[in-house]
Simulated scan of single mutants.
Amino acid sequence: MTTSTAAPAAAPAVTPSVVPAAASPVRFGDLLASEWIKTRSLRSTPWAIAVTTVFVIGSAVAATMAAHDGDAVPGAPREFLPFNAFPAAGYWTLMLVAATMGAITVVSEYSSGLIRTTTVAVPARGQVVLAKAAVTAALWTAVGAVTSVGSFLASQAVLGGGAPATQHGLARALVACTLVAPICALVGLGLGVLIRHTATTVVTGVFTLVLLPPMFSEGTRWSADVNHLMPSTAWRRLVQNWPADPDSLAYTATVPGSWAVYLLWPLVAVVLAVVVVRRRDV
């Protein structure tokens, strides 16, 4: 009687498990490139920049022509006429457009739902806000430089020259007019993160940048201090190149204090935006 022994079944082949490599962290340079693509893909961006630039420079030409035979500002000596290149109407418009466009870079993502995709791809929300702020600041600094230099050159063309590049206060005015655009754009970005609603953000920006400062006169100390904390007041002081009227009862803002306002507003806006996005659900 024969006994058959079954051959042992072959052991199943064991394939080594492949452990996926950990996802590499998103580089900040990639975030900058992504935010730049988002910004330039907005249809309103090139049109807003082009129209605003033409309007600001056109306002400078109109103000200079009006002041060609007299002083645009009562009490301003004629040697300060080149500073009519920076009219309030044109630069208030620049402030509002920059603030609105800065807010749209954030609010548009919330309204379209793209912010959810962004936060899934980049969980570090603070870095996203910093990338948005960097792109926004760079873009509107370039716009501010074009408008400030263009406004001055256009006004000089109307006047037939006459303002040397070394004229006292000219460099300060050019820098102030260049930086006011990115400052307001970053303020708008911060408001957009805080409010996340287009109409409310725009109205808040208009009220804060343009309507609020005139509510506080410079006749009393506390009111003047509040007025001097506003970006538009700081811009006006930095552009102003003639001494204050000694008979005036107003408290005049200082140049160092105005530069401090220029620094604090965008810094506070960006810091608040970073803190809010880290603590709040999308």
Results as ranks from 00 to 15, higher is better:
Gly192Asp: 14
Gly219Leu: 04
Thr5Trp: 10
Leu229Trp: 08
Arg280Pro: 13
Ala88Pro: 00
Thr105Trp: 03
Ala131Trp: 04
Trp265His: 12
Ala76Glu: 15
Val73Gln: 12
Val54Ile: 12
Val203Gln: 06
Phe152Arg: 06
Ala98Val: 04
Pro243Cys: 04
Thr100Trp: 09
Leu159His: 08
Leu114Glu: 14
Val187Asp: 04
Asp245Thr: 02
Val14Asp: 08
Ala62Leu: 14
Thr254Phe: 01
Pro82Ser: 05
Leu263Tyr: 01
Leu96Asp: 03
Pro20Arg: 11
Ala181His: 10
Thr52Pro: 00
Arg278Asp: 10
Ser217Tyr: 07
Ala145Pro: 00
Val261Tyr: 10
Ala103Cys: 03
Asp245Ala: 07
Ala10Asn: 00
Pro266Ile: 13
Trp242Leu: 09
Val26Gln: 12
Ala157Asn: 06
Leu194Val: 08
Ala171Leu: 15
Ala181Gly: 03
Thr200Ala: 15
Met101Asn: 05
Phe55Arg: 00
Val143Cys: 01
Val143Gln: 01
Ala89Asp: 15
Val202Asp: 08
Leu209Ser: 09
Ala134Lys: 12
Gln167Asp: 10
Gly169Lys: 05
Thr141Ile: 06
Gly29Trp: 07
Ala60Gly: 15
Ala48Arg: 01
Ala23Cys: 02
Trp235Cys: 01
Val135Trp: 07
Arg196Met: 08
Asp71Glu: 15
Val143Trp: 00
Val122Lys: 07
Ala63Met: 02
Leu170Arg: 09
Ser223His: 05
Glu35Met: 06
Met215Cys: 00
Leu189Glu: 08
Gly150Cys: 12
Ile37Val: 12
Ile57Ser: 00
Phe28Ser: 15
Phe28Gly: 10
Thr204Pro: 02
Gln156Asn: 10
Ala6Met: 07
Ser155His: 08
Val210Ser: 03
Val270Arg: 07
Leu170Gly: 09
Thr178Asp: 02
Ala13Lys: 09
Thr201Met: 13
Pro12Phe: 06
Pro266Gly: 11
Gly126His: 04
Ala234Asp: 04
Phe216Val: 15
Met215Trp: 03
Ala98Pro: 07
Gly150Lys: 01
Ala50Val: 14
Arg236Val: 12
Val135Asp: 06
Trp259Cys: 04
Arg27His: 13
Ala171Gln: 12
Ala33Glu: 11
Val277His: 00
Val187Glu: 00
Gly192Gln: 08
Tyr110Asp: 13
Thr178Ser: 04
Ala154Asp: 11
Gly29Cys: 09
Val158Trp: 12
Gly144Met: 02
Phe152Glu: 05
Gly219Tyr: 06
Leu209Met: 10
Ala7Asn: 03
Ala66Gln: 10
Gly126Val: 10
Ile49Lys: 06
Asp245Ile: 06
Cys177Ser: 06
Gly144Trp: 02
Pro46Thr: 05
Leu130Cys: 13
